[in-house]
Simulated assay, not measured.
Amino acid sequence: MRDGLDRVGVRRPIFAASSVARLLSGVAAAVAVLVIGFAHRPAVDAGGDDLVTADGEWLVIAASATLLMWIAGTIAHLGSMPLLPPFGRLFVVQLGASFANHVLPAGVGGMAVNMRFMRRLGMTRGAAAGAVGLNSLAGLVTHLILLVAVVAAAPSAATALAPRVHWSALGPSGPATTVIAAAGVFGVLGALTWLVSRLRRRARGHRSKTTSHLARDLRQLRAVLRHPGRAAALWGGSVSAPLLHTVILYAVLQSLGNLIPLGTVLLVYVVVSAACALLPAPGVVGSLDVALVAALATAGVPSTTALASVLGYRLITAWLPLLPTACVLVVLLRRRII
Rank of each mutant, 00 (worst) to 15 (best):
L104P: 02
L134P: 08
M115K: 09
G37S: 13
T53G: 07
G174Y: 07
A299V: 02
A318V: 14
R202C: 03
A62Y: 00
V52N: 10
I260Q: 12
H166S: 11
L266D: 00
P42C: 10
V247P: 09
V165Y: 05
I338R: 00
P155W: 02
I145F: 13
F38V: 11
A128S: 15
L329W: 06
R120P: 03
L225V: 15
L292T: 09
Y269T: 10
D3Y: 09
L34K: 05
R226D: 07
A39I: 09
V328G: 07
Q94N: 14
T177L: 09
L214I: 10
V271W: 01
L5P: 01
R125P: 02
A231E: 02
L51H: 01
P242Y: 06
A46H: 12
R226K: 15
G236V: 01
A233I: 01
F91Q: 08
W235V: 14
A176I: 00
L288Y: 01
D3F: 08
L104I: 12
A129G: 11
G236D: 05
H166N: 09
T210F: 06
A72L: 02
A153N: 12
S197M: 14
R219M: 10
I260K: 04
S156C: 02
P163S: 14
G187F: 00
I316W: 00
L292K: 05
G174T: 10
V150S: 03
I337N: 01
S303D: 14
R116A: 15
A183I: 02
K209T: 15
L134I: 10
L259W: 11
F99Q: 04
A294G: 15
R198Q: 11
R125N: 10
G107P: 03
V35W: 14
A76E: 13
L78S: 07
G73K: 05
W319E: 01
L315Q: 04
A274H: 02
F15M: 13
L170T: 09
L225H: 09
